[in-house]
């Protein structure tokens, strides 16, 4: 659990981060979203003490971070930055092994861990471990950056615009993969982005920052349903609120049982798809309802146009 209490950082006369308090629960993904210059990166970098707060308290699992030597603290926290920051003079395997080496792990344990992580990130160890960063594509570099952050099995991972350098198609795949990895490892993640869609897609909780202050910190649903501030509504895009809401609901969760009296729908969506995708499919096919299919492809229920529209209504 990460707890920030009244955290403030001044540069000269200007408060870049101004009295921020928030709590990130264990295993959650908190996304800090804001425009450039809103102070979101500085906030993130205060958690692993790359920047020291001017005042306020930051604690991890109840322990004040300022009591731990900065480099020791950082070895226990994963850190991923935009443009990956891979060491160009080291192979992929050596890059990933950075923190375990700093921690003095035995050699065979490091080797095992490196191939484990390469597998986890869908990079074949045989092909990639000996390569240098410049030999990889942008997406591969980004994945190596994530693997390096996860190498020592940190409970907390900080990510500063981790997908910023990726093109849109790879980016959404990378986002899905991150979600899956987090579900598997149960790490607490704090991610900084300027992309509102990314925030809604990834965040269990979202903190909207502007001019150094957190305007609102809450679940995506709260954010749309009860914006605490007109600026939040503006940032989240009030006009798109309905669609964002639909994007948060999985078709499987919204499915109704089949009505035996009507014939089964001719088109279907997978249970993992969002209602936003279901709506698009309904509009496109001109049908009034869709079958929802499970992982095995068998129908588990249906969604109707009316029920989708109901989900999108302002709560």
């Amino acid at each position: 659990m990460i707890r920030l209490e009244g955290v403030t950082r001044f540069y000269g006369e200007r408060a870049v981060v101004d009295d921020v308090s928030l709590v990130v629960e264990k295993g959650e993904m908190a996304v800090v979203v804001g425009r450039s210059g809103s102070g979101k990166s500085t906030l993130l970098r205060m958690i692993n003490r790359l920047v020291e707060p001017t005042s306020g308290l930051i604690s991890i699992d109840g322990r004040d971070v300022s009591t731990v030597p900065a480099h020791v603290l950082r070895r226990g926290i994963g850190y991923v930055i935009q443009g990956h920051g891979l060491f160009p003079h080291r192979t992929v395997a050596d890059n990933i092994a950075t923190v375990p080496r700093l921690l003095g792990w035995p050699r065979d344990r490091i080797a095992r861990r490196v191939s484990e992580l390469l597998e986890l990130l869908q990079l074949s160890p045989a092909r990639f471990s000996g390569q240098y960063p410049h030999q990889l594509s942008g997406g591969e570099q980004q994945r190596v950056g994530v693997a390096r952050a996860l190498a020592a099995g940190p409970d907390i991972v900080l990510m500063d615009e981790p997908f910023g350098a990726l093109d849109p198609i790879i980016r959404s795949k990378a986002q899905d993969d991150l979600k899956a990895i987090q579900a598997r490892l149960g790490a607490t993640i704090v991610l900084v982005t300027h992309d509102m869609d990314e925030a809604f897609r990834l965040g269990d909780r979202i903190a909207v920052m502007e001019a150094g202050r957190v305007l609102q910190y809450g679940t995506p649903r709260d954010m749309i349903a009860r914006p605490a501030d007109p600026r939040v509504a503006e940032l989240t895009g009030s006009g798109e609120g309905a669609l964002r809401l639909l994007a948060l609901v999985r078709a499987g969760d919204a499915a109704e049982p089949f009505d035996a009296s009507t014939p089964p729908p001719s088109h279907s969506v997978p249970a993992g798809a969002s209602l936003r995708e279901a709506l698009a499919s309904l509009l496109w096919t001109g049908e009034g309802e869709l079958a929802v299919t499970g992982d095995d492809g068998r129908p588990v229920g249906r969604v109707t146009l009316a029920s989708v529209l109901r989900h999108g209504r302002s709560p």
Partner: peptide, 18 residues
């Protein structure tokens, strides 16, 4: 408008205390 601003802020921040 000024994407590098963030990095600049960070850079300064690192230096100040020391």
């Amino acid at each position: 408008m000024a994407p590098p601003a963030k990095a600049v802020i960070g850079g300064q921040g690192a230096g100040r205390p020391s």
